[in-house]
Design a binder for these strands. Structure first.
Length: 347
DNA sequence: TACCCGTGGCA
DNA sequence: TTGCCAAGGGT
């Protein structure tokens, strides 16, 4: 650590940490400022859940996971189907597949890695989570850069290079202000600042502890940083899903399948469908003894889907699957798209 | 690098 | 209603 870096970090990080000591958000996966950190399992679990996901959406999932699987060993011993079902509705299901694989790797080696390189070797752990776990759980210096830090740093230094090319400059700026001590508090303070003060639109500069340091504010239009490339238009796809019912001695049940592979909704329970995820348009409305229950609209990251829902009490399912009791459909762990379709089928 | 991968809240 | 975007990672 150079003396010049120490000096440049000093003012900004000190003002930020003083603000954090007063203003830290209280979150289920967090220790208060200055307190011993949560164990690595909790930090890692929360960081995986928080990827591209709001704290409000994560909170109930985090509580349920921690109650059901209190340790990484417990999670490692879980059934795949139980973990996937517990993740249902949170999105980005590769996170759940990787979470379980990583838990099993940690359990096999006996403890969590405590270095960025060691952590990055775990599935689903990239540069951000590795740095966040090192800083927050192990309280060692690491340069933690998420979308909040990107925004704060791009504004502090008025970095006009558009994303993603700006990432190199942003990382250098984050490195320059990251202190040697209280690395975890500093990282979380940056995120709190980004979430509550240095917001994407209409930043509240009058409340900002770093206003005096901020070049973007001095230039008069902080909200223009970071500069983002134009978004591409989202296409709309059409597809069909099938609600196949039967009634027998065990009661009323519906045929569910498990989606294959690592593609969209991969590994999740689902209604059988016409293959909309693998082609631009599905095959559409089937002929025969089907009732069209309606159409569900659902937005994915890079396309919107119009899914027509078709119901039959006579069709014979083919391939692998399971008859699931209709009265317990909410326990099946259907991702939101198919939960919507089920609700439509049930009218 | 560019694209794939969910969902929900909010203006 | 539509678009934006949130504690990113994998390929």
């Amino acid at each position: 650590m150079s003396a010049s870096k120490d000096r440049s970090a000093n003012g900004v990080s000190q003002r930020l940490l003083e603000w954090y000591d007063r203003s830290a958000r209280t979150l289920p996966w967090r220790s208060p400022p200055g307190k011993p950190p949560p164990p690595p399992y909790r930090v890692w679990l929360s960081e995986v859940m928080l990827q591209q996901t709001t704290t409000a959406a994560v909170a109930p999932y985090y509580a349920r996971f921690l109650e059901r699987w209190p340790t990484v060993e417990a999670l490692a011993a879980a059934e795949d189907a139980d973990v996937m079902a517990a993740w249902a509705g949170l999105g980005y299901y590769s996170r759940a597949r990787n979470l379980l694989a990583a838990a099993r790797a940690v359990a096999a080696r006996g403890s969590f890695p405590d270095t960025e390189d060691g952590l990055r070797a775990l599935p689903g752990v990239g540069a951000y989570i590795a740095a966040a776990v090192v800083a927050i759980a192990f309280d060692r210096r690491a340069v933690v850069v998420d979308a909040n830090v990107e925004r704060v740093v791009a504004r502090l230094f008025a970095i006009g290079t558009p994303l993603p090319a700006a990432r190199k400059e942003i990382r250098a700026g984050a490195d320059a202000i990251t202190p040697d001590e209280r690395a975890g508090d500093f990282a979380q303070a940056m995120m709190d600042l980004g979430a509550t003060i240095c917001t994407p639109r209409d930043p509240r500069c009058l409340l900002c502890p770093l206003a005096q340091d901020c070049r973007a504010r001095a230039e008069g239009d902080p909200a223009r940083f970071p500069v983002r490339p134009a978004k591409k238009a989202k296409p709309t796809r059409k597809g069909a899903a099938f609600w196949i019912e039967r009634v027998d001695a065990t009661g009323r049940s519906v045929w569910l399948v498990r989606r294959e592979g690592k593609g969209i909704l991969g590994g999740m329970r689902a209604l059988p469908d016409d293959g909309w995820s693998a082609r631009a348009d599905g095959f559409g409305v089937p002929s025969g003894d089907w009732h069209h229950a309606g159409t569900v609209r659902h937005g994915f990251t890079h396309f919107d889907l119009e899914l027509s829902v078709h119901v039959s009490r006579a069709a014979q399912p083919d391939g692998e699957g399971e008859w699931w009791p209709v009265e317990r459909i909410e326990e099946a762990g259907l991702p939101t798209l198919f939960a919507k379709a089920a609700a439509r089928a049930l009218g």
